[in-house]
Amino acid sequence: MSYLEFRNVQASYGTNPILLGVDLDIEKGEIVSLIGPSGSGKSTMLRVLIGLTPLSGGEIRLEGKPIDYATKAGLRAVRSRMAMVFQSFGLFDHLTVEQNLLLAPTVVGKKKRAPLLEEMHEVLRLTDMQGHDGKRPPQLSGGQKQRIAIARALMLHPEILLMDEPTSALDPIRIAAMSDLFGKLAAQGVTIIQVSHNMDVVRSLSDRIVLMHDGRIAATASPKRDQDDNAAIARFMAAEAHQA
C-alpha cells in the first residue's frame, strides 16, 4: 500500500472527458513532478485531488482509505491535509497579504491570531517576502504574487502540497531558493506534487517524473534512482528545454 493511490481516476468537464483513467502511487515525502503538453490534464490532476473537479470514475486512496469527495465532512477532511498553489495564484485582491495568509487559519482552522502572526513572518521570510504583509495583491509583481501564493499554502502546514507551476513567474535565483525550500519540506515528510514546465527544476527536484499525455500517464521515471531516464520522458524534457 502506498501513501496516496490513484486508481483508474477519470474526470470530465461537462461531457468532455479529460482524465481517462490514471493510475499512480505516491509515497509520503516524495516529490512528484507532472509534465506534459498543454491541455494534457496536469492541472486537472491537482484539482481532482483537492476536490475542485469531481471524479467521474475510479478512486483516490489516502493511507489506504478512499477519499470521500461527495460529503462535506469528507471534503473538509481531505482539504485540511492539503494545500494548493494555483497556476493563476488565486490571491484575494481585496485583502492584504496578511489577510490572505491568515484567512484560512483563523476562519477554517479557528486558530488564534497572535501566534499566527509569528508564523506568518516566518513564512514570509522563507519566501523572501518579509515586509510586504500590508500590501494587497494588485500592488505586487507577478513573482511576488507567486511567492505569496506559496506562502499562503505553507500557512496551512499541509501534509500534501499541490503546486501548479509554482516557479513560472520567478527569476533564477528565486527558483533556486524555492526549490531548496521544497526539498526541505519533503525531507520533513511533506508530499509534494507539482506541475512544472521548468525542466531544470523537474530534473533536480523530483523523486519521480510523470509524463501526462491526453489525459493518461504516458511514462514515469525516477531520475534520482534510474541512471537512464525513460526515453519518452527524456525526449519531452529535451523538447521543453529547447523551447525555453
Binding site: 475542485l52 492539503m82 494548493m84 495564484f89 488565486g90 484575494f92 499562503r152
Partner: peptide, 8 residues
C-alpha cells in the same frame, strides 16, 4: 476555487 481549496 482558491477559497474552496483553503477549506472555506
Amino acid at each position: 476555487a482558491a477559497a474552496r481549496a483553503l477549506g472555506l
